[in-house]
Design a protein around this nucleic acid. Structure first.
Lengths: 339, 339
DNA sequence: CTGAAAGCGCTAACAC
DNA sequence: GTGTTAGCGCTTTCAG
C-alpha cells in the first residue's frame, strides 16, 4: 500500500480511505480515486487482513465450531455455512471439537483470539451450560445452530423438532402402525427434543408406550445395529422404528437387512435430517427434511449482518416430511421379526 | 502483554523472550522467568496471532482448499486434517471451491493473503494445470492430496489407485466374474487413474472389454442410477460393476434394489475409498480402504514440519481391499438383470 | 479534499 | 540478563 501511495504521489491515508470506500464521511476527488484504483490494480494490491485486524477492523473471518465433522449432516451444514459466508466475502475458520466440550471451550478462545467477526456453533452443547454462559459474554456475536429450542443467552437457530416428529408419527399411525419404537442418541440438543416429542405424542395415543421402546446409543450406525437387536428381542417387537437421525436410520436399514427383515414389509423405518444419502439408501428413507439453507442463512445473517440483534434471539424453522420407500402399511401378520 | 510487563516491572522484550522460549540464544534468570509466567497466567494472557503474523512470524494457520465438502470422503479427510493440524497447535482455514476451479484460484490468493503457514489442496484439480503452476510458485508450501500420481511441481500425496483396482479385480475374477463393468466420474485425478487401471487390467485378461462397459457420470449416487440402467440395457449386461468411488457404488446398490436386482446374487458391486457409510449399506459394500490417516499425516508433515522438502515430492501410499457382502460368486444363471 | 502522525500487539536488532 | 528502539501494514484522529 505504501508503494501505491508513492506511485500516485498521495499519502497512505488517502489511499486507505479510497480503498475502503469510507461511507461519504469524507469526500474525495473523483480523479484521485480513479487514479488510486487504477494503480492498485496495476500493482496487484491485496490488503493484508492481519494488519487490518490488528488495527481493530473486521477480519472477515467467521469462526465455526463443530463437534463431529464426519457426521454427514454437519458436513452438509459446513458446506452451507461456507457458501453463505463466502457470499458475504467471509472466510471460515473451522474448529473441530471432537465431541469433547473442553475442546470446544479451547476453540472458542482460539477463535476469539483470532478476532473472528462472529462465531457459529454447530451441534448440541447443552450438556455443558458453562460453555454457553461463557459464550454469552463473548466479545463477538455467537450464534448456535441445532441446539434445541431451550432458552439461552446466545442467539440460536433451530428446527422445530416437535413438528418433525409429529409429522413422522402422523404418517406412521396413518399407515396403521401402533407399535412404534424410537431410537435416539445421547440425550442432547435436538435428539433430546425429538425423543421428548415422541414420548409426548405417544401419550396422546391410546396405545401405551411399551418397555424398551425408546432406545438410545451414540449417533452412529453401529449403535443402531445393536439397538435393533434389542428391539427385536422384545416380547412384542415394534412394527416401525422412528430414528432420531438419518445416520441411525441407515444403521437400522443395514441391520434389518442383515437380520433378514424386509423393509418396509416387516418393519418401517424413518429418519430425520434428510442427508443427501437418505434418498439412496436401500430402500430409500422416509425422513424429515431439514431446511438447511434457511437455517444457515438465518444464522449467518444474525451473526454477521445484525450482530446486535443476535444475542438471545431464538429462531425456530419448520421441517417437512419426505415420504420415500422405507415406510409402508403395517403388515397383515402384524408382527415383525422372525421372517 | 504490556500489562504483564508493567506488573512485573520488566520490559516487553524480556516478557516476549520468555513467553516464546527463545532457544537458549539469550539466557534469562530463572527467577524472572517464573515471575513472568506466573503473572501471565494470572492475567490470562493470550498472544495475539494477528500481531505475531504481522511481524512475520508463523500464524499457526493451515489453509485447506476442498472442492466438494459434501462428498463424505472429503468430509472424512477434513476431519483427519483438522486432527493432524490441531495436534501441532494449528488451526484450519477452510476454503470451499464449489467445484469451480476459478474459485480455487481466488481462495488460494485469500489464503496466501492470510499468511497461512501452508496450504493443502484436497481433490482433483488436474483439469486446471494453471492452478498447479501458480501454486508451485506460491510463497508458502502447498501439498496436494488425491491428485493422482502425475508429476507436478508441488508436493503431493496420493493412493496407489492401480493397486486398489487390481485388488478389486483379482477378487472379482477369483469369484468367477468375467463380465465386469466400470463406473467412473469425470476423468480427473484419482477417478481417471482408476479407470485407466481398470482398462489395463482388462487388457491382460482373455475377455474383451465390451462396448458400454465403462460408464461415466459425475461423482454422485444419482448418476450411478442412470448408469446402471444403461448397463442393464446392454445385450450382455455385466455380472459385476466396479465403481470408482463408494458414493457411486451406493447409488448402484440403491438402483439395483429399485430395479429388483439382488446384490450380490444377480450383480456384484464394489466401491473405492471405504467411507464410513460403506460398512452400513445394504448389503455392506466390498471396497478399497483408503489409508486416510497415513495420507493426511504425510501431507501435514510435508507441509508443516518439512516445508523445504515438500515441493515436487510425490508420495504414493498403498490401499487395501475390504471384502464385505456386496460381492459374491457369479450366479449359476450367468446373467444379471431380468430377475 | 488531503497529509502527518500515532498506534494496534508483538518481535528482533542492538545497546547497556 | 535486561531495556530501548524500530517497525510489520494498516486505520484513524487531527491538522492543514
Amino acid at each position: 500500500m505504501r508503494d501505491i501511495a508513492r506511485a500516485t504521489d498521495l499519502s497512505q491515508s488517502t489511499v486507505s480511505r479510497i480503498l475502503n470506500r469510507t461511507p461519504t464521511l469524507v469526500p474525495i476527488a473523483e480523479a484521485t480515486r480513479e487514479r488510486v484504483i487504477a494503480t492498485a490494480m496495476e500493482l496487484g494490491y491485496r490488503p493484508n487482513p492481519l494488519a487490518r485486524g490488528l488495527r481493530g477492523a473486521s477480519t472477515m473471518l467467521l469462526g465455526l465450531i463443530v463437534r463431529d465433522i464426519t457426521d454427514p449432516f454437519f458436513a452438509g451444514a459446513i458446506e452451507a455455512v461456507t457458501m453463505a459466508a463466502s457470499s458475504r466475502g467471509y472466510n471460515v475458520v473451522l474448529g473441530h471439537a471432537h465431541a469433547r466440550v473442553d475442546e470446544a471451550i479451547t476453540l472458542w478462545g482460539v477463535l476469539e483470539a483470532r478476532h473472528c467477526d462472529a462465531i457459529l456453533l454447530l451441534g448440541d452443547t447443552s450438556d455443558q451450560p458453562r460453555l454457553l454462559q461463557d459464550l454469552a459474554s463473548a466479545q463477538v456475536p455467537v450464534v448456535a445452530l441445532w441446539q434445541g429450542t431451550q432458552a439461552s443467552d446466545i442467539g440460536s437457530v433451530s428446527v422445530d423438532n416437535r413438528a418433525g416428529i409429529r409429522a413422522v408419527l402422523d404418517h406412521l399411525t396413518g399407515l396403521g402402525h401402533r407399535r412404534i419404537a424410537f431410537l435416539g442418541g445421547r440425550r442432547l440438543g435436538d435428539i433430546k427434543e425429538r425423543e421428548e416429542a415422541f414420548v409426548n405424542y405417544y401419550a396422546e395415543l391410546r396405545e401405551p408406550l411399551r418397555d424398551g421402546y425408546t432406545q438410545r446409543g451414540v449417533n452412529d450406525p453401529e449403535s443402531a445395529v445393536s439397538a435393533l437387536d434389542r428391539l427385536l428381542a422384545l416380547p412384542e417387537p415394534p412394527t416401525a422404528v422412528v430414528a432420531a437421525t438419518d445416520v441411525l436410520a441407515t444403521g437400522l436399514l443395514h441391520a434389518g437387512n442383515a437380520r433378514g427383515l424386509r423393509v418396509p414389509d416387516d418393519l418401517s423405518v424413518t429418519g430425520f435430517d434428510d442427508i443427501p444419502f437418505a434418498a439412496f439408501t436401500v430402500p430409500a428413507l422416509t425422513t424429515v427434511c431439514m431446511p438447511m439453507r434457511e437455517i444457515v442463512e438465518q444464522a449467518v445473517t444474525m451473526a454477521l449482518d445484525d450482530p446486535d440483534g443476535a444475542s438471545g434471539n431464538t429462531q425456530v424453522l419448520q421441517p417437512s416430511l419426505i415420504v420415500r420407500a422405507s415406510t409402508g402399511p403395517v403388515s397383515a401378520s402384524g408382527s415383525s421379526g422372525r421372517s
